[in-house]
């Protein structure tokens, strides 16, 4: 069919704008991870990070993290200008080592959760969250 200028523009905008290109993890993330772990190795283990595959809106993304037995969990948005999201330290009366919260993601990226176990070891989990440009810009 014969496309008008408007239609071509809409096609072009649509094709490229459906998902932001993934943001690579920054050096800042590495520094913050090192500060938390003291440079120790991070392994895998019983830690679950729950995040949506696609964020409805990057401004408010619900995430949950659970690491049974953990002393503390650090959450990082590796693609954010400042990757640190928060550190959850569990006290003696914590009923479980899990937290749900809502975070800001600047673009499509990997969200990382690192748990420090009572014996000084570290385990991690990550999830990729697509952050998109929505609608008509409104």
């Amino acid at each position: 069919m014969n496309l008008t200028r408007r239609e071509t523009l809409a096609l072009g905008l649509g094709a490229t704008a459906l998902a932001l290109l993934p943001i690579r993890a920054s050096a800042a993330a590495d520094d913050q991870i090192a500060a938390f772990t003291g440079g120790a190795d991070i392994g895998t283990g019983d830690i679950t990070l729950t995040a949506p595959e696609i964020a409805e809106n990057g401004n408010t993304v619900p995430v949950a993290v659970n690491a049974p037995g953990a002393a503390a969990i650090m959450l990082l948005a590796t693609g954010n200008p400042n990757p640190a999201v928060g550190t959850f330290n569990f006290g003696p009366l914590a009923g479980s080592h899990s937290v749900s919260t809502r975070i800001r993601l600047a673009g499509t990226q990997d969200v990382l959760a690192i748990a420090r176990m009572p014996d000084g070891s570290f385990i991690q989990a990550s999830a990729t969250v697509k952050v998109t440009i929505g609608g008509c810009g409104g």
Binding site: N80, N82, G91, I103
Partner: peptide, 9 residues
């Protein structure tokens, strides 16, 4: 629980 919060919250 004791949470350190950063701007990404």
């Amino acid at each position: 629980v004791d949470v350190t919060m950063e701007p990404a919250i």
